[in-house]
């Protein structure tokens, strides 16, 4: 039995030093969530990339189907008025 058969796959999200939110950085194998966080610390933050780690077992993620791409995303292509580019953002609003 190989490791990949024994240990479930985990998706890793890291929030960087100046990042506003966690970003998906990759995946790895681990026996449980705590082990996954430790492994993520060693695999993905060894060059000082992060200040916080989230892990999610890959099987718990539901994904949209690639074959559904047309109906899901095409309709929003020509709706330029949905972008807030016609406003002047006040500085106090901060990051949007």
């Amino acid at each position: 039995m190989t490791v990949s058969e024994e240990w479930p796959l985990w998706e890793i999200f890291i929030r960087g030093q100046h990042g506003m939110s966690h970003r998906h950085v990759g995946s790895l194998h681990a026996v449980d969530a705590e082990h996954a966080i430790k492994n993520a610390r060693d695999v993905y933050t060894r060059r000082n990339e992060g200040v916080s780690i989230w892990v999610v077992e890959a099987s718990n993620i539901s994904a949209s189907s690639p074959s559904n791409k047309g109906p899901l995303f095409d309709p929003s292509r020509d709706k330029v008025y949905r972008h807030p580019t016609f406003y002047d953002l006040p500085d106090e609003a901060g990051n949007m």
Binding site: W7, H29, A30, V43, R46
Partner: peptide, 12 residues
């Protein structure tokens, strides 16, 4: 090492 993750952890 027996797994990639352990390998990197031990190297660290």
């Amino acid at each position: 090492a027996p797994a990639l993750e352990e390998d990197i952890a031990l190297a660290n």
